[in-house]
Design a protein around this nucleic acid. Structure first.
Lengths: 228, 228
DNA sequence: CTGATAGTACGGTCGCGGCCGAACTATTCG
DNA sequence: CGAATAGTTCGGCCGCGACCGTACTATCAG
């Protein structure tokens, strides 16, 4: 009973269009400033400030001050998973009207999902890892095989350090455009980070969409056998 | 962008206290009538009817008519998982004030979580299965061992039939009172069902709380080594 | 110091939506 | 058939909260 009212409070925080836009923008994984979020939300800076205050009070986002900027981010991985859960339900809903735009197209191809790679690219990466026997993914969870440990080490990713973190290590995350699972959890996060470090992937301005660099095109082909 | 507004719509559906109460009541796993839900929500039948209409339109709940009654239930397991995700975030929040009531106490001891057993009993059952080597549960997912298959068969549960369902087979579900995982997924559901069939567990009126019958006390002790 | 930019606080408007009373439809029972 | 119960629809009230204009506090540049 007493918990229900708090469920309603949290859901109401997400249930405003401006705030949903803010959270969705932050699901890109980057910390963003109040101004950037005002633009993403489509409302004035004053209004945005109010929303950010509410979201911060509700512990859904966190804020770090840096000079005259304030950077906001999703507070915890658990909050990110909650939002993914809502997106999964939304993806299940019967489509209403979808005027496909260019940005939508880019989003479908490749985007970040909190801190890992989603979209066609994310699903294809995951499939490649499974096909090569580096990863076993079920509906329930996932596991890196022995050959996968070697593969990741050669790729420059330290799985041992990743495994020691508190967070869920390896799990499938339902892709709301492809409607198939892609790799999430800590493993998904370090894999994405490595791709950014290698400059294989770059974030597009104003959004969660990603572009594959020429180096990335070559690297993804050689390492994962992906032809883009 | 276009998906964000639907996220907000879904979250807003959950974000009303009366509707959150309704959904929470339905998370008990039973289909309930409109009157029962009106009582659970704490609002008039007319108001409840409006809420139920909105929730049904939003595909969060489904309705089956039976005579002059209408039974409402959570529409899909995915919706149930979304709600669990919200509850997990709520459980993370710093506690406000909690005047512990008798019903709360019963809920903490044993309750249903959509269709499986939660609370102290759920966690202890899960621990017992793990300790006996019938179940391996990680943060990521879970697996029934060979000895577990035998154990469940002897217990009268047909895992093969359960495995063939589309739904996630075996997964950990964060318990929001114990803050530790208990067994969810299809395996959790059939285990709970078997306990109901054996009349080991009974639902209490008006709520998700469960009582252990004398037969259940004996059976749970003999089969799982639980002393209650 | 002044001017510019990032962000917040406050006050007032306004519209959406939750709420209930009353009236209406559908099913069961005697 | 008529009475009783389950549930919905309609209409009107009312309050919460999103929104913006204005004014304010920080930080930085020159």
């Amino acid at each position: 009973m007493t918990a229900d009212v708090r469920i309603a409070e949290v859901a109401a925080l997400i249930g405003d269009p401006a705030r949903a836009n803010i959270l969705s923008a932050l699901m890109g994984g980057q910390a963003l400033t109040a101004s950037e979020l005002a633009y993403a939300a489509g409302v004035s800076p004053q209004t945005t400030s109010g929303h950010l205050g509410k979201l911060t009070d509700g512990r859904l986002i966190a804020c770090v001050r840096q000079g005259r900027h304030r950077y906001y981010r999703i507070a915890t991985p658990r909050v990110a998973e909650m939002l993914e859960g809502i997106m999964a339900v939304v993806a299940d809903l019967p489509p209403r009207h979808r005027p496909p735009s260019k940005l939508d197209e880019a989003m479908r191809n490749a985007r970040t999902c909190y801190d890992h790679v989603a979209g066609k690219l994310g699903v294809n990466l995951t499939d490649a890892l499974c096909a090569r026997g580096h990863l076993v993914l079920s509906d329930d969870g996932g596991e890196i095989t022995d050959s996968g440990v070697v593969f990741f080490r050669d790729f420059g990713v330290d799985l041992a350090a990743a495994r020691s973190r508190r967070r869920i290590f390896c799990r499938p995350c339902l892709d709301w455009t492809e409607r198939r699972p892609h790799l999430g959890g800590t493993v998904g996060a370090v894999l994405a980070q490595r791709c950014f470090d290698l400059n294989w992937l770059q974030r597009m301005r104003d959004g969660r969409a990603l572009t594959v660099t020429p180096a990335g095109r070559q690297g993804l082909s050689e390492t994962f056998g992906l032809s883009l």
